[in-house]
């Protein structure tokens, strides 16, 4: 395992991300809401660049107590979306939200002084 440079802390604002090619690994590193997350950039579906799509909150159906449908809303859970076909992943876990048994490989992110590294 080695540490691969991602960015200076000051250069990676909240909401930013980087795609890091670290030897044979291709890793998406997200900085969101004060935390860093790093996942394999290969979608579990067809191998698309899973970490390169948009960030969007989970969509939920609003079902009233009488079980009637009352429209849709965004939940707090944040997803990133594979731009090839739309597979969505929970940014906090790397789980594929269509089937949470499927997960992207997760990598550790470490901070050394002013620098961010990913461990791969």
């Amino acid at each position: 395992m080695a540490e691969w440079f991602v960015a200076k802390v000051a250069d990676m604002a909240d909401g930013d991300r980087r795609i890091v090619t670290a030897g044979p690994h291709e890793i998406g590193v997200f900085h969101k809401d004060g935390a860093f997350y790093a996942y394999s950039n290969y979608c579990v579906h067809a191998g698309g660049p899973a970490c390169e799509g948009i960030l969007i909150n989970k969509v939920v159906d609003i079902i009233a107590p009488d079980r009637t449908y009352q429209g849709q809303a965004f939940a707090d859970e944040l997803h990133f979306v594979c731009p090839w076909h739309g597979y969505e992943y929970d940014i906090k876990t790397g789980e594929c939200v269509g089937n949470r048994r499927l997960k992207l490989r997760k990598y550790d992110v470490v901070r050394r002084g002013d620098d961010i590294f990913v461990v791969a």
Binding site: W4, F5, R18, I19, V20, T21, G47
Partner: peptide
């Protein structure tokens, strides 16, 4: 290789999009 890439949403290259 070692490379760090920032993502942009105002450009597109199909070769990059389909690199995998």
């Amino acid at each position: 290789r070692s490379e760090v890439r920032n993502l942009r949403f105002d450009e597109f290259s199909v070769e990059k999009h389909l690199e995998h």
